[in-house]
Amino acid sequence: MIRSEILREIAPILRDQLVVCNIGLPSQELHMIDDQPTNFYMLGTMGLASSIGLGLALSQPKTVVVIDGDGSVLTNLGTLPTIANNVADNYILLIVDNGSYGSTGDQPTYAGKKTSLAKVAEACGCENVVECRAEETGEVLQKAIDGRKMTVIVCKCESGNVKVPVITKDPVVIRDRFMQAVAS
């Protein structure tokens, strides 16, 4: 399974949550599959999805699901200790680990080689870390939401992309729509 197939499968679960979605193809795919006011699309700033989601989870009570990528977590690896030491039980970090920088043409990342992001997260102090196969993502995600415990999910999947249009929505519109959904 590739990222877009996973997103299609978990879209019905994501619908009811606040979602912060990673730069590039993940946001474009989610936007195409199921655009919702509860989705915050990152149009730039590689690496900060997990940080934006944590700030959001710590500042209001609704559940926040971050759709992140292995490459983006690697570029902002300092995020994992911050997550571990600032527990928000309404926070779920879903790392779609396709072992590549998918959005830029599937160049391999170290997460697809010797580096285990699940083990890194554990070593950083994250308490609920689940590594799963792509096929299990929906089940694991639903369980994490229902469990109301801060969870890091590392979903191991294949790399590969589908053709998808870029997001042309104005960033201020995305942000304002999202903030209204957060506050409603």
Binding site: V20, F40, T45, G47, L48, A49, S50, S51, I52, G53, L54, G55, L56, A57, L58, S59, Q60, N76, G78, T79, T82, R175, F178, M179, V182
Partner: peptide, 12 residues
């Protein structure tokens, strides 16, 4: 990273 946290807090 800190500015990312701040962006999320603001939206929250």
């Amino acid at each position: 990273e800190g500015m990312g946290l701040c962006a999320g807090a603001y939206m929250g």
